[in-house]
Design a protein around this nucleic acid. Structure first.
Length: 113
RNA sequence: CGAGGUGCCCAGACGAUCGCGGGUCCCUUCGGGGGCAUGAGGAAAGUCCGAGCAUCACAGGGCAGGGUGCCGGCUAACGGCCGGUGGAGGCGACUCCAAGGAGAGUGCAACAGAGAGAUACCGCAUCUUCAAUCGCUCCGGAGGUCGGGCUUCAGCCCGACUAACGACAGUCAAUGCUUGCAUUGACGGAGUGUAGCCAGCGCCGGGCUUUACGCCCGGUGAUGGCCGAAGGUGUAAGGGUGGAAAGGCGAGGUAAGAGCUCACCCACGGCUUGGCGACUUGACCGUGAUGUAAACCCCACCUGAUGCAAGAUGGUAUGGAGGCAUAUGCGGCGGCCCGUCGCGCCUUCGCAAUCGCUUGAGCCUGCGCGGUAACGCCAGGCCUGGAUAGAUGAUCGUCCAAUACAGAACUCGGCUUAUGGACACGCUCGCGCA
RNA sequence: CGCGGGGUAGAGCAGUUUGGUAGCUCGUCGGGCUCAUAACCCGGAGGUCGUGGGUUCAAGUCCCACCCCCGCAA
């Protein structure tokens, strides 16, 4: 997942937290705000674990989102990990990301079918 | 075989597909695409020390403050490392140590205890002063501990146990026999009394006299006392306590005592032997000082402050707005003084980019050289992360006993803490077998 | 990444400077007052002083290491 698709600045995160719509499941929360480009940010707080655990969760979330890059609408996405995400497997995170994108109605019309 | 001790090493490996960062080469329609090799740790952690680097005057002085603290060496430096000394622990291999000075001064040592760096409270001995003895009975039971009761508390009472301690508590003589005990007496101590004595007081009688207060003698009554008490001097042997009580034990000595003297031992200082030194040896000389400096302090050495969010570059740039001040003031400057430089101070509004940013007190090899070692020197070889919301992951296969603690954020050298495993030993102790 | 503050009874806090007894308020428990409750009065219980070492005769206090919580600035 290349760097240009990534949400970088703190102000952008604040914008999404203010304007975005949120959906959630047990391990994750997803926020979405309209925008021109396609940028995704990941937020993993210290409650999740130590530095090794937090890096592992971020890597897994990036890998989960990567296959959907061509299929979703443009806009700003933020995925927040809850503390229980530290114990989740890669497969369950994959399912959760797909479920949340569907619940957010973020897939393009043509790919729905 | 079991229990240890020390040292050293590794941190999953290989292959396939997809994906990420920077580097380099090639292509490019300048958007990017492809190839190549490469890409987290022993602790990257905690942020406890030491440095490099940067800015403040390339940082000036003094005091204060802070740090370190056996000795020698190593190192850029250190609170680190190595080797010794002393002490502590362990049967041992071995491990651990803020380990200068209490004989420079100040402070503190609660409670208990007579007394806490100084004490005569009891006792012992001696001296002085003070009026007054006999009979009978008995020979210690203060204190401590435990239990019970009473009381507002302080404390008091009763019972049991203890015999260290003491009044340095028994000493001396005679007799008897069971020959180490009993009896008696004296000294000593305690209690007691229709006895005796002393003191002043009250009452009664007599006498004296200056006829007024009084004085003397005798009797009687109750009270208090009758050999201890008070004071001086000497003493540090003994005295419940306490972490600690002015060296320890024995003998001599003395009125009683005391390192007062002596022998042995302990500690400290001097001298002396060995060692660069900490320290150490000794048959010599002197002294007997409590502990605490992780209390203040003294001595020796070190120490300017702030940290890459430092700072630099070019951008509209010693910025814009509001308020307050205006040189005995404010700031750089941190606790104070001096010195020096600048001219304002407070509140508020403000954006990113690039550099710093990785070649460095660097790593590997040598049965190289010097050194016990830490380490240094020499020779050869190597380039080995540089991200900026933060790069190492996902799936599968094989091997494996199985991956624990854990993610660089300017960079190094240490310390401390967390944690899985493997190996080695002319190492130690115990048990068994030969 | 750097810096600062804190951890003491069920809760909120003193005590740490200068080492010897751990205390205050609320709450809780028992009793009283009341027809009953509250308020009020009397009495009591409740503490690994964050953890582990060290210095000291003695540590909540002094020293060292570690753990946890909160805050500041980008």
């Amino acid at each position: 997942m290349e760097r240009r698709y990534r949400l970088q600045k703190n102000k952008a995160f604040q914008y999404v937290y203010h304007r975005g719509k949120s959906v959630a499941c047990r391990d994750l929360v997803m926020l979405y705000a309209k925008g021109r480009g396609l940028q995704v940010g990941f937020s993993v707080s210290k409650k999740v674990g130590n530095a090794v655990t937090r890096n592992l969760v971020k890597r897994r979330l990036r890998e989960c989102f990567r296959p959907h890059l061509g299929d979703v609408k443009n806009g700003l996405y933020v995925i927040v990990a809850r503390p229980s995400a530290a114990n989740a497997t890669f497969q369950s995170l994959q399912k959760d990301v797909a479920y949340l994108l569907k619940k957010q109605a973020a897939f393009k019309e043509g790919n729905r079918a």
